[in-house]
Every structure is written in structure tokens, then in C-alpha cells.
Simulated assay, not measured.
Amino acid sequence: MSGIMESAGTEAARQLPGGCGDTGGAGQDRSTRHALLDAALDVFTERGYTDAGLTEIAARSGIPVGTLFQHYGGKRGLYLTLWEEFREEQEHRTAATLAAERSGGTTDPIALFVAGARAYLEGAWDNRKLGRLFADDDGPAGFDALRRQWDRAWVRRNARLLEVDERRRAGRVRVSVLTTVIGGAARELGDCGDETEAREIVDEVCGILIHLSARAG
């Protein structure tokens, strides 16, 4: 998509040791898949990735452990699939917002950037349980490297959206700061007590982004 979010794709997840592989075979039953992912999310958020047990995930989902392995290969596969689904949902949301803004005649790079950032932050609030999970440092081996790879791609895409010359160090640093502001705000939203507080944070952050973006070029 254009700016704000960029998918590392399922292929990137497969590059991790013991990656999830094909998690969505044509014959996979959707209800089974959802039950396993919902149970995995609950257990991961309650116990952390390291202490999460496959037996508990299977028991909560009502799906045999063997079926869990068949579909996801274990904890890593479940975690990476949750990550991909979170990323894809955020990606679709921000892509739709940018497309609507452009269709409405918006061409200003800062206006587009802030609109996309707002959509991303609203998605972070809507999906805050997943957001809290991925904000923690407890994940499968290699996940930090994958997240850093995606973060670098995110900065590059935002630089293009803001029409910043990536060859200029000052421009790159400013876009990196802007991207970090969005990521930090998304983590804060995970701890918000209610929607009113979340909206206040989103509005405040978008104001900050407008101010900082003014000199991004």
C-alpha cells in the first residue's frame, strides 16, 4: 500500500526458523482456524509467548493438539499468523483511507500522511489486544528481526508518501521520528481505559504529526 503501513508479507514470516508455512490451505475449515487463533491470542496475552502452552491453547479452542500442529506447526505459526492478520487489517484500513482521500481530491502529502496515520491509530485502538501482544518483547525466535525489517520499510514508505528525498539524512531522520511517534502512540492506545481517552490521544498525535511534518521535506 502507499505509506503508513507496508506488509512484509507471509513470505517474510516463512523466513523465520520454523516459520508457519502455508497457514491457509484451501481445505482448512474456517471455524477451526478462528478457534485456534482466538485461543492462542487469549493465552499469549495472559501468559506471554514463552510461557504459553500448546495444550492450553488446544483445550481452550476445543481443537486437538494434532490439528493445531497440522494447521500452524506450533506456537510460532500461531503467533506469526496473528501478526500477519493484524498487519493486513491495518494495511487495508489505511489503504482504503488514502484511496478515499485521493478520490476526494486530496493531494497534499502532509494531509495524506496524517489521514493515514489517523486510520492506523484508530485501527490500533480497535485491535488493541493484538497491539499489546506485539508491543511486548516476548515473541518467537527471529521475530524482532522481522519487526525491525518491517519498521525500516515503513519509514521508507512514509518518506515517499511525504515526498521526502531519502538521500538527505535530515529528511530520513525526520520521517523516522514521525514513524516512531505513530508507533509509540499505537502502544499507548493499547492501555487506554475507554474510547474517549483513545480519541483524545489520536487527535493529539495527529496534531503533533502535522506540526512535525511541516518541515519534513
Results as ranks from 00 to 15, higher is better:
72 Y>Q: 07
147 R>A: 14
170 A>V: 13
99 A>L: 04
3 G>T: 04
177 V>K: 05
61 S>H: 02
8 A>F: 06
215 R>N: 11
133 L>Y: 05
95 A>T: 15
213 S>H: 06
165 D>M: 02
45 T>M: 08
140 P>M: 10
120 Y>F: 15
158 N>Y: 04
188 E>C: 07
181 V>M: 10
42 D>Q: 07
15 Q>I: 03
172 R>H: 12
21 G>E: 06
105 G>I: 05
127 N>C: 12
163 E>T: 06
23 T>L: 04
152 R>V: 10
66 G>H: 12
92 H>Q: 14
134 F>M: 07
70 Q>N: 12
164 V>G: 06
201 I>Y: 14
141 A>Y: 11
160 R>G: 11
186 A>M: 00
212 L>D: 04
152 R>Y: 03
95 A>S: 15
83 W>F: 15
195 E>T: 10
13 A>I: 05
28 Q>Y: 13
167 R>W: 12
70 Q>D: 14
124 A>R: 09
63 I>S: 00
35 A>V: 00
132 R>N: 08
148 R>E: 15
67 T>V: 13
73 G>I: 02
24 G>E: 14
27 G>M: 08
150 W>V: 13
132 R>L: 14
25 G>Q: 07
189 L>W: 09
86 F>V: 00
138 D>V: 11
28 Q>E: 11
196 T>H: 10
150 W>S: 11
15 Q>L: 15
112 L>H: 05
202 V>F: 05
61 S>F: 01
199 R>M: 12
142 G>L: 05
30 R>F: 13
59 A>W: 04
15 Q>F: 10
108 D>Y: 13
145 A>T: 09
192 C>F: 09
196 T>A: 14
214 A>K: 06
116 G>L: 06
167 R>C: 06
5 M>Q: 11
183 G>D: 11
4 I>Y: 10
33 R>K: 09
28 Q>C: 10
201 I>Q: 10
151 D>R: 15
62 G>Q: 03
